[in-house]
C-alpha cells in the first residue's frame, strides 16, 4: 500500500459469486479490481500500466486457466495466482513450473490471498522495473553508430584494441575512438560494467583474444 503507483488485480472466474466475493475483499483492501467471466474477456480488455496480477480459476468455460497461462508465457504478463476447487499436487507443480505465484485451493483464507497478491504485485513491480531498465539499455544500444555497434561485441569478447582494429580493418587509433564513444554512450564505467550491460542485452561473445 505504500506504493503510489497504480496497482490492479484481474480476477477471472466463471462463478459470479466468487468474482464478486474476491472483488469485494480486494476493494476493502483498497486494491483496484477488474473481473472477467472468461479468459477471452480478459484477453480482449485493455490493460492499464502499473503493477498488476491475475487471480485465475483453473476451470474456465472456454479457455482453461492453464491454457491461458501457456498463451501468456511468451510475452510479459502479470504474475498468476491460481485458485481452484479441486486442485492436486501434479496440477500445482505444473502451474508453479510455468511461473505461477501461488496455487490456492478454494476456499482459501483471506490472508493467504493477501500474501499471494502482495507477492505477485511485488514480483510484477520488479519485473516492470527490470523491463524499464532493459528498455533504457536498449535505447542506449540504439543510440550507437554502426561502427560503434561493431566494436561493442569485439570489446565485450575481450579483444585487444589492436586485434579489434585488425578485425574491422581500421587503425588502432580509430578503434580506440569508437570504443571511447561507445563506452560513453552505453554509460559503462568500466569494461566489467559494459560486459554486464551486454549480457542484459544478450549480446553474444563472438570472438576470442587468442584467436578461433
Amino acid at each position: 500500500m505504500s506504493h503510489e503507483d497504480h496497482k490492479a488485480v484481474f480476477v477471472i472466474d466463471d462463478d459470479k459469486r466468487v468474482r464478486d466475493g474476491i472483488s469485494e475483499l480486494l476493494e476493502s483492501w483498497g486494491i483496484d479490481v477488474k473481473t472477467f467471466a472468461s479468459a477471452r474477456e480478459y484477453l480482449d480488455a485493455p490493460k492499464a500500466q502499473g503493477p498488476s496480477c491475475l487471480v485465475l480459476d483453473v476451470r474456465l468455460p472456454d479457455i482453461g486457466g492453464f491454457e491461458l497461462q501457456a498463451q501468456l508465457a511468451s510475452q510479459p504478463h502479470p504474475p498468476i495466482i491460481f485458485i481452484t476447487g479441486h486442485g492436486d499436487i501434479p496440477m500445482t507443480v505444473r502451474a508453479m513450473k510455468l511461473g505461477a505465484v501461488d496455487f490456492l485451493p478454494k476456499p482459501f483464507k483471506k490472508h493467504e490471498l493477501r500474501v499471494a497478491i502482495e507477492a505477485a504485485l511485488e514480483r510484477d513491480r520488479d519485473a516492470l522495473r527490470e523491463r524499464s531498465s532493459l528498455h533504457e539499455l536498449q535505447n542506449r544500444l540504439e543510440s550507437l553508430s554502426t561502427r560503434e555497434r561493431d566494436v561493442l561485441p569485439l570489446v565485450v569478447s575481450g579483444l585487444m584494441n589492436k586485434q579489434g582494429a585488425a578485425k574491422l580493418g581500421i587503425s588502432e587509433i580509430t578503434f580506440q575512438i569508437h570504443r571511447g564513444n561507445m563506452m560513453r554512450k552505453m554509460q559503462a564505467d568500466s569494461l566489467a560494467d559494459l560486459v554486464r550491460i551486454a549480457t542484459k542485452l544478450s549480446i553474444p561473445i563472438t570472438h576470442s583474444r587468442y584467436g578461433n
Binding site: E24, L25, R59, F108, L113
Partner: peptide
C-alpha cells in the same frame, strides 16, 4: 461435490472478510 460446495464457500469467506 467439493466444487459445488467450494464455490459458495469462497464467496462466503471473501464477502465476510470484506
Amino acid at each position: 461435490i467439493a466444487h459445488e460446495l467450494n464455490q459458495p464457500l469462497v464467496a462466503v469467506v471473501t464477502n465476510s472478510s470484506a
